[in-house]
Design a protein around this nucleic acid. Structure first.
Length: 195
DNA sequence: AGATGGATTTTC
DNA sequence: AAAATCCATCTC
């Protein structure tokens, strides 16, 4: 998808990202999957957004132009992939929380030692980054010029897309209940099926 | 349920 | 300088 796709209201980008394909090509290696779960993070008033404490060296990436990757380390162990949205100087992004693998399953299994079943390969933001080999070296890349990119796919009907509160943001006060999480309804690769 | 682990941020 | 925090995952 071109950068313009991400230069729109974050909730709309998040909704439209569900069903598209996330692809990573390194050398002759290609891994791909269908995005089945995302979350929107938007503005300094969103207490679950890293930018809620303002523009710092860490959060600077969220203020970049739409289509740029914001990749960060969580709990000192796992990488999480976000794509910046809206416009430059406004902090907002969509977190990719889960994909359904379609290509390169063997490479994913090799990187995901702990996964026993295929459903455990990419059913979480940290898991999918490990399966894809996404790390801090992708931080700041633009989607039009990166080994990692999003491919278009037919739009899912509204009835096939579930919506609910975001995961792991109990600390975010009144922002905790915002229904800014989107997923493919009934898909076994969604990280937390209950919605 | 408990351990893990490091960068960022807050507090002393 | 030290403590607390965090958009998670694995193992027990």
């Amino acid at each position: 998808m071109p950068g313009e796709f991400f230069a729109r209201p974050t909730l709309r980008v998040a909704r439209d990202l569900v069903g598209k394909r996330l692809v990573c090509e390194v050398g002759s290696d290609r891994v791909a999957g269908t995005i089945v779960e995302v979350e929107a993070y938007r503005g300094e008033a969103d207490r679950a957004c890293h930018a809620s404490r303002g523009r710092t060296r860490r959060t600077e990436g969220l203020y970049r132009c739409p289509g740029v990757y914001y990749v960060y380390l969580i709990y000192g162990m796992y990488w999480c992939l976000n794509v910046v949205t809206e416009r430059e100087d406004y902090p907002a992004a969509v977190l990719v929380r889960a994909v359904e693998p379609t290509e390169g399953l063997d490479a994913m299994r090799a990187r995901r030692g702990a996964a026993r079943r295929d459903e455990e390969l990419t059913s979480g933001p940290g898991k999918l980054c490990q399966a894809y080999g996404i790390d801090g070296s992708f931080h700041g890349d633009h989607c039009e010029r990166s080994r990692l990119f999003v491919e278009d796919a037919p739009r899912l009907p509204d009835r096939g897309v579930g919506r609910g509160p975001r995961v792991g943001v109990d600390y975010a006060g009144e922002c905790r209940d915002h229904p800014w999480r989107f997923c493919v309804r009934g898909n076994p690769f969604v990280s937390r099926p209950r919605l």
